[in-house]
Design a protein around this nucleic acid. Structure first.
Lengths: 203, 203
DNA sequence: TGTACATCAGTGAACGCGCGTTCACTGATGTAC
DNA sequence: TGTACATCAGTGAACGCGCGTTCACTGATGTAC
């Protein structure tokens, strides 16, 4: 739908004042939050628009007033979630050390609440099959996180970039394997193995 | 459909001889091979029965004479692929060393041909959301592979099990991240970082 | 002041489509007698 | 020897269903004059 804002009104601000200035942005954010949680809990392919909109307190028809397509929603959800998590991680990593971050990442709690967790652990194999557009958006959003890890590493500085990348891969792979391990004891052992491995890469 | 083999025939062997004894088993294996390749290339949720059957040279209706459901097909495909790959890996690892295996796993070729590659790299985040039945079948099939890696590790023997688990997680995570990285140079750097990290865990 | 009209976030039914699954049927092959 | 019948791997159309997406419409809110 196209609206000609200049046809009968000269003051766009006055027009928009019919709704609170941030009303639509708020709805947009609610949809994004529902989508982000559901995609992390259920994957991209198995989660639908109608369920996301219902979770946001809306009906499916309203979706396309906020996003151009499901693909756009996925991209925006991945980017905003990665960005938000990097920002909260930047705070945590300045308070505590890298070891705490590793233990938080490979915790039982993170394993058992994927809807609040790392998008990479939840969806990385799906992202690898997605469009170049999504892959580029994903990597661009991830890179500052890798840089943050790198900045906290000890040991040989010439290998820090590679060790940060490998550590992140190890965290993601360990969490995925722990989630794919039904036996609680074995799953815990996967997390412990990941923690020890990540520590040894930290230098 | 129920067939009463005893109603008019006393010799079941003679009855089955109408088709070559291994005819149906051969078809079963062809479906399985198509499914395995397509699931690794496209994921579980996005790959359908009709496409798999067409790739096997059949129509969709024949599927349920060979498998009870799509879930059963997924389970059988994952188990047989993991088993076959472990067997070929056991040969390779007795000829060469673990370093060769790591480099083969994190190669450009493996990254670019997921349909022939590791099911864990292709589908682990999906398996983590699947039924307990699939998870148990997956882990039971994977464990001998982890034991094989463990048997080839150097260093402290008390940490071998954990290091083998962490190395596998690192290989899987690195491959997924490399596939999710559109830029060829960066993707290659992810593989190199994974190789260096896996080598350091090898002891 | 009143009434005709515009805006627009959201509704909810409908669209075409592909999914997993079912089932009546076919055709090649055999047995019964 | 002939013909009636059984087996069964595979066919292909159909089933109900949920998907992503579209669109005519509503209702609250405002402006025009």
């Amino acid at each position: 739908l196209q609206y000609d804002y200049t046809a009968n009104f000269t003051d766009r601000e006055a027009l928009m004042a019919r709704y609170a200035a941030d009303h639509k942005a708020g709805t947009h954010d609610r949809i994004l939050a529902s989508a982000s949680r559901q995609f992390r809990a259920g994957g991209i392919a198995d989660v639908g628009i109608a369920g996301i909109m219902a979770d946001a307190g809306l009906t499916n028809g309203a979706f396309y007033a906020h996003f151009a397509s499901k693909n756009d929603l996925v991209k925006e959800a991945v980017v905003t979630t990665l960005t938000a998590q990097r920002e909260s991680m930047a705070e945590e990593i300045s308070r505590d050390d890298l070891a705490t971050l590793i233990r938080d990442y490979l915790s039982d709690h993170h394993r058992d609440t994927p809807e609040d967790g790392c998008p990479s652990a939840a969806m990385l194999s799906e992202i690898g099959r997605a469009s170049s557009e999504l892959k580029v958006a994903y990597r661009d959003s991830l890179d500052p996180t890798l840089a943050l890890i790198e900045s906290r590493l000890g040991g040989d500085s010439t290998t820090k970039h590679a060790r940060a990348t490998a550590m992140f891969s190890l965290l993601v792979g360990s969490m995925q394997l722990a989630r794919a391990t039904a036996d609680a004891t074995e799953s815990g052992a996967v997390l412990e193995a990941g923690i020890a491995g990540a520590m040894s890469l930290a230098g």
